[in-house]
Amino acid sequence: MAIVEESVGEDGVRRRDFIYVATGAFAAAGAAAAGWSLVDQMNPSADVLALASIEVDLAAVQTGQAIKVSWRGKPVFIRNLTAAEIQAANATPVSELRDPQTLAERTKEGKQNWLITLGVCTHLGCVPLGAAEGEVRGDYQGYFCPCHGSHYDTAARIRKGPAPTNLEVPEYAFKSDTLVQIG
């Protein structure tokens, strides 16, 4: 029957401790890698990511009209502002706003009439009214969220009601005068 010599190092650490620690550490690393794949599988899949950006043709949207498009499973409001609406937005002192932003900051240079925002109320995620013809547009002639009564102005900035911030402006870029890529 073999008697195993335990090699004890200068610092008193025995070799078998190293083997146990190394085995345990390796097994833990393997478990962590397996665990990560279980987490990662819940991230957006390749086909979902492929739809992360869309292109929208604006040629048919007349001044004063708005359209709703679906982007990443959520509505996006695209409004072609009238001169009066632009003026109303610019006339509002920024200091009065809950979430201070000018219309210029919320649109692209030279395209100030195109107000592109997510159609998701920043309060609790309902879709505000006002993008479709004939809908209520609230006290400030922008959008109105019926869930808890948030009023947005013509630059889709929060003016009244519980919502904390303005309607979010998604990342977008004009590819030509009438073609916009969102996302």
């Binding site: 029957m1 073999a2 195993v4 078998r16 146990y20 085995t23 393997g30």
Partner: peptide, 20 residues
């Protein structure tokens, strides 16, 4: 393969203690 080698060494170590 590395983990199998390590776990084999660990297994032999544990049992060697028993024998000694």
């Amino acid at each position: 393969l590395i983990l199998t080698g390590l776990s084999y060494l660990a297994y032999r170590r544990v049992w060697a203690e028993l024998k000694s």
